[in-house]
Structure formats: C-alpha cells, structure tokens
C-alpha cells in the first residue's frame, strides 16, 4: 500500500501525512505539483497548508497545477483521493466536490481538537460505524463550509455528508456547533461515488498516542483495507 502525497508551493502538511502513514505501517511517496505520473500510488492525498499563499481564494490556483488533471482522471477511475484542509479547499475549487469553504464565521484562525461524528455515508475511506465519535484536530482559517439548499438536499440523499462537528457524546449542538460556522455542522464530504473525500480536520495529526490520540488512523487504515480488497 503506497500513498502519494502531493506538494504544492505553500503546502506544509505533506511531511506530516507521510510520517503518519509510515507510522501506521504503509509506504508513502511525495508527488510534486508539476508531476503528471501517478502510477505506483494506491491513493492520493492532497495535504494541508497554504498553496499559492491562499491568493485569490484558498485552493483557487493549485487546482490548475499540472498534477490536478491527472488527479481528476485518477478519481474518475474510482480510485481514492483525499483532501485534508487546504486539500479539501482545492477539491471544491476543482469542482471535484460540491460547495465551497469560506472564512471562519468568527474571523479567527482555529487550532484545536474537535469531536466529529461519522455519518451514514457513501464514503469508502472511513472504517467506523455511523455514529462513532472521533477526536481529531482542526487547524484552519477558511473551514466554513457552504453550499446551496439544492446541493445540501442532494448530498443528504446521496450520503455525501461524511463527518459533522458534534459534542463529545455525539449529539449535535443546538443551533449549530461547528466552530467555524459550517453549514449543517459539516466537517467532511465525499462525491457521489464515495471515492473523493474532503475534510477540514487533520487525521494525520491524530495517529500517535503521543500527539493526543489515534482516531485519525481510521482514515488511512480504511483506505489500505479497501485497496487490498480490490486487489485480492
């Protein structure tokens, strides 16, 4: 199992992702944004950071990187593509996922560990039962997810809402509990097919007990397990 982690100019979490997946016993390699060869990778991760300085809009420039057209093809083949934080923003800008991520409602950069509830979803890259509460850190300024009502209804119907910000016991806060103001407390979504997954929290930062928890491991182990299933 080999993860390919893309580095855009301004990415800053690529090494964290490589470290996390290595720590979990999987292989990983770096992919430069100018590369166009994705052969040899079983899953692609777009990591967090500030690609192109977040100029114009977060992810707006990175989506035109040469590697992105290959990633679109890779995703169309049904293979795993995960966008974490800035990677999620890039996937929305590339229209590989619906909606957009706006500035946090309180205008503050938020860096803290949050509780997430796994929803009943089409996402193929999370191997916990619906309702499971996971503790994973967030670290962003633009995580305020938004989409129009029609898109939200369609996402609910298709099971595209994967993770929602919740209370420690898994209940949703009255009047919305997303620290960033995200619509419907949305923290992570997938495409209709369930193979493109974007999330604001950083699972790679929750894979070692020394860093405060291991709930983030589920995301990477689920991909590895599914990839192995397909291969066998």
């Amino acid at each position: 199992m080999r993860f390919g982690v893309v580095t855009f100019p301004g990415s800053n979490c690529e090494q964290d992702v490589v470290h996390a997946v290595n720590h979990l016993g999987f292989d990983a390699g770096h992919i430069w944004h100018g590369d166009t060869d994705l052969s040899g990778y079983d899953a692609i991760v777009l990591p967090g950071g500030f690609s192109y300085g977040d100029y114009i809009r977060c992810g707006a420039v990175a989506r035109f990187s040469p590697v992105m057209s290959e990633i679109v093809r890779y995703a169309e083949a049904g293979r795993p593509v995960i966008g974490i934080c800035n990677g999620f923003q890039i996937l929305t800008e590339a229209h590989m996922l619906p909606g957009a991520l706006l500035r946090n409602r309180g205008l503050k950069f938020i860096c803290k560990t949050v509780h997430l509830r796994a929803e009943e979803s089409a996402c193929r890259w999370l191997d916990v039962p619906a309702g499971t509460v996971l503790r994973v850190p967030i670290n962003h300024n633009e995580g305020n997810y938004i989409c129009d009502d029609e898109t939200l209804a369609r996402m609910r119907e298709n099971g595209q809402i994967v993770l929602r910000y919740c209370e420690p016991d898994g209940t949703l806060a009255e009047g919305g509990g997303a620290p960033n103001g995200a619509l419907d407390d949305i923290a992570g979504i997938c495409n209709e097919r369930g193979n493109v997954f974007g999330l604001m929290p950083h699972p790679e930062r929750a894979t070692d007990p020394m860093s405060g928890g291991t709930d983030g491991a589920h995301f990477f182990t689920a991909i590895a397990r599914r990839v192995a299933e397909v291969a066998s």
Binding site: N104, L107, N144
Partner: peptide, 11 residues
C-alpha cells in the same frame, strides 16, 4: 446573495 460574509458582518 444569501452567502454569509464574515468580514462584512464584522465591519
């Protein structure tokens, strides 16, 4: 229209 503008609302 209808998209919440955090910096605008703060101003």
């Amino acid at each position: 229209k209808g998209i919440f503008d955090p910096p605008g609302a703060t101003a």
